[in-house]
Simulated scan of single mutants.
Amino acid sequence: MKNAYIHHLCIQTKSYLETVEFYTEALGFEIVQQTPNFHGRAYNTWLKLGDFYIELQTGKQHEVLKPVYSNSEGIVHFCIWVEDLPFEVERLKKLNVHFKQKDGEIIYEVENGALCKLIAPEGTIIELRNNRGI
């Protein structure tokens, strides 16, 4: 795959308005395109952060979406690198973002840096990381 790169992740949600607000207000994504009534879905929306996109969509009409389970196969989380992790955590606390804690801590040290994990309204786990040396 010469000259290839990851373009987007697709995330489904049953809490569309809350999810759009989370990704735009808390994480800084911008809405690039919002399409109502998209092939049996209430919405299909493209969100962008830098060169990375999320295709956010509601389930198809009369479809029941099951909750995300973090111990399943497939993508477990995605990560956003931030310059000042403590600043971002304090900013997100004011927005009542739900953090996943480890041993009672929001920010914890890992090899080559520190990280925290957020849980989006639809259940996606998002890691914020401040790397050293990677």
Rank of each mutant, 00 (worst) to 15 (best):
K66D: 03
W46R: 04
D84P: 00
T13R: 13
R91C: 06
F99K: 09
T45P: 00
K2D: 13
L128Y: 10
H98F: 03
I6H: 00
P86G: 11
K66F: 11
E21G: 01
I11R: 15
V97I: 03
D84S: 08
T13A: 06
E21L: 08
V68Y: 15
E63H: 10
Y16C: 09
L95E: 04
I107H: 09
K93H: 02
Y69M: 07
T24K: 14
I31R: 07
I106T: 14
P36T: 09
G123W: 11
S72T: 14
E109I: 03
F87N: 10
N71R: 13
Q101S: 02
V32H: 06
V20W: 07
E127W: 07
K66M: 12
Y69K: 12
F52R: 03
H8Q: 03
G104C: 13
I119W: 09
L49E: 01
E111L: 13
I80K: 05
L9R: 02
E25V: 04
E83Q: 13
P86H: 13
P67F: 04
E83M: 09
V89G: 02
G59H: 09
A26W: 06
C116K: 02
E122K: 09
H8C: 02
K93D: 01
R41P: 03
E18N: 11
R41Q: 15
E88W: 12
M1H: 10
N37H: 15
E73S: 07
S15L: 08
F38E: 00
Y108N: 06
I125E: 15
I119Y: 12
V110W: 11
N71F: 14
T19M: 06
Q57R: 08
E109F: 04
I75T: 04
W46S: 01
V82L: 08
Q101R: 13
L27P: 05
L49A: 12
I75K: 05
E25D: 12
L47M: 03
T58C: 08
